[in-house]
């Protein structure tokens, strides 16, 4: 990506990483996408309430800075594996919200032609190898994708997103170990939102920080405030450089919070209203980023309003696209099980 010019860079010397590294246009685009993720999930939630979407969904509202920060230094050819809470990753990696809505609505125009839904949302053309319904399921797959990158010398970096719950799965440990032994170009990103469903990390995890587990696999373990875009992007940037240089994997723990419950069945009995309110009012990642952009002179109120209205329009168009798209025919239930049938 083209960065800031030299003169501009000098004037930003004391600002946090992303304001030195990226242009105003790029950073405004980040704000746009953070809003796009937020409004997409709000739109999906509302559509669910109205009965337009069935099943369940896991919303990442409150975690947008993490998805955007990690994906900021990635190129279109780089790949990610995602999680059941993966809408933000998908958008951050370049997906179109209209095709995501279409997938949630179960339509043929969706990214998975209506076969996957929220929990398997993917956009392979943009490098998103798919969300995953199994906690930790994508982590070894990301290591395999990184092995492909190394064997085929494509230079691709692979990011594996997972949550705090996954760090107690065997797959996490097996995958990190192999990635380190083979020095693969993969970045493990733990979005620690404090709870695996209802069980807090304090009750489930023996180490204080999940990043501490990196030591067991001889890789850097980095802790970032997952609600501050610049912090996340800086850690990701360094991990990508390390991976591209052939120095192996990094574990990034991004400490964050989900505003909504685990899924649609959550009664929020394991955390207090005060705790949720505190995160929403005082540590909202979009508000924090927006305030910084304004403070550092990258955007004004008019610019913010333009972003918000642009996002609102894209969301409305996306939902409309999904509504009018065709459903798959029942006669096609057996499609895509095997390659020959496609």
């Amino acid at each position: 990506m083209a960065g800031a010019s030299k003169a501009v860079a000098d004037s930003r010397a004391n600002l946090p990483f992303v304001y030195r590294q990226y242009s105003a246009e790029q950073l405004k685009q980040v704000l746009y996408k953070m809003y796009l993720i937020r409004r997409f999930e709000e739109g999906a939630e509302e559509s669910y309430m109205r009965g337009l979407i069935h099943g369940t969904m896991h919303l990442s509202i409150g975690q947008e800075a993490c998805a955007m920060g990690i994906c900021m230094p990635l190129g279109e050819d780089d790949q990610i594996t995602s999680t059941h809470r993966g809408h933000g990753h998908c958008i951050a990696k370049g997906a179109e919200v209209k095709r995501m809505f279409a997938e949630f609505f179960g339509k043929t125009t969706g990214y998975c032609k209506g076969r996957g839904g929220s929990m398997h949302i993917a956009d392979v053309a943009k490098g998103n190898l798919g969300a995953n319904g199994i906690v930790g399921g994508g982590i070894p797959i990301a290591v395999g994708a990184a092995l492909s990158s190394k064997m085929m010398k494509t230079g691709k970096v692979v990011v594996s997103f997972f949550g705090d719950g996954a760090n107690n799965e065997g797959a996490f440990h097996e995958a990190l170990n192999m990635a380190a032994v083979w020095k693969l170009p993969v970045i493990f990103v733990c979005e620690n939102n404090g709870y695996g469903m209802s069980t807090s990390t304090a009750r489930s995890t023996a180490v204080k920080n999940i990043a501490d587990r990196a030591a067991a696999y001889s890789m850097p373990g980095v802790i970032v405030n997952g609600n501050i875009f610049s912090e996340v992007a800086e850690a990701s940037y360094k991990a990508v450089e390390r991976a591209r240089a052939g120095e192996g994997p990094t574990l990034i723990e991004s400490k964050t919070y989900r505003h909504r419950g685990h899924s649609k069945s959550d009664r929020n009995r394991y955390r207090t209203k005060e705790e949720i309110e505190d995160w929403m009012s005082n540590r909202d990642p979009i508000t924090l980023f927006e305030n910084e952009l304004r403070e550092f002179g990258f955007i004004d109120d008019e610019g913010i309003e333009a972003i918000r209205s642009g996002v609102a329009q894209e969301i409305a168009d996306g939902i409309e696209f999904a509504k009018v798209s065709p459903s798959p025919d029942v006669s096609e239930t057996g499609n895509y099980v095997y390659t020959e049938q496609a």
Binding site: Q79, L129, P140, I141, A142, V143, G144, A145, M152, A175
Partner: peptide, 11 residues
């Protein structure tokens, strides 16, 4: 899982 991921990405 590594084998699955490698197969998924061209190997």
């Amino acid at each position: 899982g590594v084998a699955v991921g490698a197969a998924l990405t061209g190997m």
